[in-house]
Nucleic acid binder design. Structure first.
Length: 574
RNA sequence: GCGCCCUUAGCUCAGUUGGAUAGAGCAUCGGUUUUCUAAACCGAGGGUCGUAGGUUCGAAUCCUUCAGGGCGCGCCA
């Protein structure tokens, strides 16, 4: 349910029926016409730009048209008690008490589903996919939370969503990882000095993994790397994936599917994908030009299989094979995406870090080629996270490497604050994350501020001995809302629109912003009671007006829905 | 050299399928508490929406130019 759409439909139908009277030859399918919230100072419930849009395409005066529309609407639709023409020809509409009540009642009945934008598509969201060679860092957290909330949002609307993690457990990096563990084990067991060479992993967590593997494999001597490789690979991977999963869990994130690159290779999925692309002439043998940027000493002009991604808008064609004929990382990823396509998703979403921007065109091209342009892959990039403490850039001196791990973050900041703050910015821009601010219990900290508004509402419910599900009777004879209540109600009406644009554009950051605004209105109303007794909600442990109670319940409903989607908890007492 | 992202108040950012006088928070200044939770509220000042053009009734939003910042540009993963 969305009151803007509802009234837009009514107005459009009415206009359609009366197009001769309005002298409109061209309705252009009502494209561009919207009903929305007018600027606050006008004190109207809704506003419509129909006369502006229609006047333009019919080349008539917008104000004259607006006047005619005003009369027409007032005569035929009983929902509005007053219409005003403002600015260049906006129609500002005021709802009757009857329609206000009916809209409030609809939300109260809808409760858990208020704002839902019905849809039932199959989505696959791949996110995090951090390399299994070490713990998650702060940057991964942002993508992780973004992906998780996107999943919640799409699920809320009724879609099927698979949350997926691609484990890059194949290739050289895993060999180097296992080698590093091996050398650390030798260091512990045989006191051999660990010498950090190129491609080895320096982190202290490698030592921890080594210790664990020694403990669980008491009979293994670790004499020869090649002999121990399979064991080391399996065990080390398990250790770091456990670590990653436990960090994710602490952030409130659980994936539905972990997809292993090794399995992909074992099942010959890359070959299948390449054969399919060959058949369609998207993959052919050929030569590529040398790379444009920095010089690459290992580059060789050799015949190899090439994906013609320029056919799908990429800047250059892409190699599927390395010098030695083995598959490139990209080729494997093509195999993986073929599998996704075969699993019948209508929409694929990949959440990437800023350092993978350059990869987007080729993988999107691949999905188009694999699905005959049927499946839509959307790559969303999360920009960097910059850490601050006391307003100063924050670097943790970690011998582990120069990253700050998710664990370091989780040690200092709780899950709720991390989630809310990481979302409190568009994914397109860099995010400053201040350790101290996030822990403050004040208005400066938006997480707290929103939670606190709900705690206040909860305390009201306690005093009234009521709960959010109790039925509220609104009597039209006595119905009246004061200024604060009206503002809150209009904000509440906006909620479905927030959900719609947030899910349509994959921009969950709109939700925290909205919740903050709603909380502000509520806090303002609450505080009014401090200045003037007549604004207190309660008298002698009873609510003064049922309308007030209804408005408060509406706020609670929306805040619950919103925080639920964000995956942030809502304490009833603070 | 090329691609993607960004440039809006002193600071951090919303706002971009073209709409009304461009909005928040922080910071600054000034107020509010015998409390339904002041962990809150109210008020004030603060703007060439990076630059220069264009499109039109109307541009922060669309197009082009230039400038500044970030990330990337493998036959690595």
């Amino acid at each position: 349910m969305n009151i803007f759409e509802e009234y837009l439909k009514k107005i459009n139908t009415l206009v359609d029926k009366n197009k001769e009277i309005l002298k409109l030859d061209n309705l252009n399918n009502f494209k561009g016409i919207v009903v929305e919230i007018p600027p606050e100072e006008f004190n109207f419930d809704l506003s419509c730009n129909a006369s502006l849009v229609l006047a333009k395409i019919n080349k008539i005066n917008p104000k004259e048209l607006a006047n005619k529309m005003k009369d027409l609407i007032l005569k035929n639709l009983s929902d509005f008690e007053n219409i005003d023409i403002a600015g260049p020809g906006f129609l500002n509409l005021k709802l009757t008490n009857k329609s206000l009540i009916s809209n409030i009642n609809k939300i109260l009945e809808n409760k858990k589903f208020y704002g839902k934008k019905n849809s039932n598509k199959n989505y696959n969201i791949e996110f995090v996919s951090a390399n299994p060679t070490g713990p998650m860092h702060v940057g991964h957290c942002r993508g992780a939370i973004y992906g998780d909330v996107l999943a919640n949002l799409l699920k809320f609307n009724g879609n099927n969503v698979t949350k997926e993690y691609y484990i890059n457990d194949y290739g050289n990096q895993i060999k180097n990882f296992a080698k590093s563990v091996f050398l650390r084990i030798r260091e512990i067991k045989y006191k051999e000095k660990f010498v950090l060479r190129e491609n080895l992993y320096p982190g202290e967590y490698i030592i921890e993994i080594g210790k664990k593997i020694i403990d669980t494999n008491k009979n293994e001597k670790f004499e020869n790397f090649d002999k121990s490789f399979q064991l080391l690979k399996k065990e080390s991977l398990k250790c770091s994936m456990d670590l990653i999963k436990s960090d994710l869990k602490k952030l409130g994130i659980e994936h539905d599917n972990f997809f292993s690159e090794t399995k992909l290779i074992e099942n010959k999925m890359v070959d299948k994908a390449v054969n399919y692309l060959k058949k369609n002439n998207y993959v052919e043998e050929g030569y590529l030009d040398p790379p444009k940027g920095e010089k690459d000493k290992t580059w060789k002009k050799t015949k190899r299989l090439i994906f013609k991604s320029t056919l799908f808008g990429d800047d250059t064609d892409r190699a599927m094979q390395k010098n030695d004929g083995s598959w490139t990382y990209f080729a494997n990823d093509v195999g993986y995406h073929m599998d996704k396509v075969n699993r019948n998703y209508e929409n694929l979403i990949n959440v990437l870090g800023a350092d993978h921007t350059g990869y987007i065109k080729r993988i999107t091209a691949a999905v188009n080629a694999l699905s005959n342009n049927k499946v839509k892959l959307n790559c969303k990039v999360c920009q960097l996270v910059k850490l601050f403490k006391n307003g100063k850039p924050f670097k943790m001196s970690k011998r582990a490497g120069d990253f700050i791990s998710a664990q370091d973050l989780l040690k200092e900041v709780n899950k709720d604050s991390i989630r809310f703050m990481m979302l409190n910015r568009s994914n397109d821009v860099e995010l400053d994350f201040d350790f101290d601010k996030v822990l403050e219990k004040s208005k400066d900290n938006p997480v707290f501020y929103v939670q606190y508004s709900f705690a206040r509402i909860s305390s009201l419910f306690r005093m009234l001995d009521k709960n959010i599900n109790d039925k509220i009777d609104l009597d039209i004879k006595e119905f009246s809302l004061n200024e604060n209540e009206m503002k809150i109600l209009r904000k509440v009406f906006e909620w479905p629109k927030i959900i719609e644009t947030a899910s349509f554009k994959y921009e969950p950051h709109k939700i925290p912003y909205y919740l903050y605004e709603l909380a502000t209105l509520f806090h303002a109303y609450w505080s009014k009671g401090n200045e003037d007794q007549k604004y207190k909600f309660i008298e002698g442990s009873k609510i003064k007006k049922n309308e007030t109670l209804a408005i408060i319940v509406l706020v609670a409903i929306v805040i619950q829905r919103g925080m639920n989607i964000l995956g942030v908890s809502l304490p009833t007492k603070m």
